[in-house]
Simulated scan of single mutants.
Amino acid sequence: MSEITVRPLGEDEWQDYRAVRLEALRESPEAFAATVDEEEAFDEASWRERMKRSARLIAEQDGQAVGVVSVGTAATDDGADAGELFGLWVKPDLRGTDVATKLVTSGAVVARRRGESHLYYWVGTDNGRAVAFASGMGFRPTDERRPMGVASEDDGDEEIAMVLPLGHDPGVIGG
């Protein structure tokens, strides 16, 4: 297998982000609050604005996109400077490899460089694989819960906020 690389996308690379985002929405519609039809209708200005709002990281293998994640700013009750990891997606044939790990690690580095002290990641409480993955990356569960934002989920399902400290400890991701 060829090496997996992760790189940030600039505003002018909105078409690269659009392509992998739409692929993610087509392949895993149940995992996202948006639909492919909604996002296909966005014009260039909308995509460029999205690129400005959050960091977009793309995982590539042999020049082809194989995964994506976004890093935005988290709204916290205590006003702390924290990032939020969202929109994580990896091509199905590469799940269980290190693609997601590389994306999350790179996302933590982005948040740390922005001066954020923590990185939040919302995970479905019934998604054992995602909770285990996040825990293995050093995220810890919080008491924060919210209704699932995914359009195809039944009412009542919840997400849990998991948080990763981004301190100066060399043993901490992004540290």
Rank of each mutant, 00 (worst) to 15 (best):
P8A: 13
G72V: 03
S70L: 06
V109N: 04
E116M: 14
D157L: 13
V172Y: 12
A55I: 07
V20D: 04
R50V: 01
I160W: 02
V131H: 04
Q61Y: 05
D154M: 11
A134E: 03
N127I: 01
Q15A: 12
G63M: 09
D154T: 07
V104C: 13
S28F: 00
E13S: 06
S117Y: 03
W47A: 05
R113F: 01
E60L: 08
G174E: 10
K102D: 05
V69G: 08
A41M: 02
I173R: 12
T73A: 11
N127L: 02
S54F: 00
L119H: 06
F32K: 12
D126T: 10
G138W: 00
A111E: 06
A75C: 01
A59L: 13
Q61D: 12
D62I: 00
V99T: 15
D169A: 14
M137D: 03
V109F: 03
T101W: 12
G171N: 14
D43R: 07
L9Y: 08
V109P: 00
G107A: 15
G87N: 08
V68E: 12
L88I: 15
G96Y: 07
L9T: 11
A130F: 08
V99I: 14
G67S: 08
V66F: 04
S2I: 00
L57K: 09
E11I: 05
V66I: 13
K102H: 07
D37H: 01
V99N: 14
E158H: 02
R146Q: 12
S54D: 06
E13P: 03
L166W: 13
D93V: 01
D98N: 12
V104S: 10
P8R: 15
A100H: 12
G167I: 13
G124W: 00
G67R: 04
D37M: 00
T35V: 10
L88V: 15
G124R: 04
F32P: 04
K102W: 01
S70I: 01
T35S: 15
D37Q: 11
A41D: 09
D37A: 15
A74M: 08
V68M: 14
P147E: 15
M1V: 02
R140V: 11
E60K: 09
D157A: 14
E23D: 05
A151L: 06
R50S: 12
D126Q: 12
V110D: 14
T73D: 09
K52D: 05
R145I: 09
D37N: 02
R140M: 03
W89N: 11
D154Y: 07
Q15V: 10
S46V: 04
H118L: 08
T105L: 10
G63W: 06
T101I: 05
L57D: 07
D157K: 12
G128H: 05
V109L: 09
E158L: 15
P147N: 11
E13C: 07
L166F: 13
S117H: 10
D154S: 15
D157P: 01
G156I: 11
E84Y: 02
V69W: 01
D98K: 13
G149S: 04
E38D: 14
L94T: 01
Y17H: 07
E60N: 04
V150M: 15
Y120C: 02
D16N: 03
G136M: 02
D154Q: 12
G107L: 10
D126S: 11
P147S: 11
W122D: 04
S2H: 02
D62L: 01
V110A: 03
S135A: 11
S152Y: 03
Q15I: 06
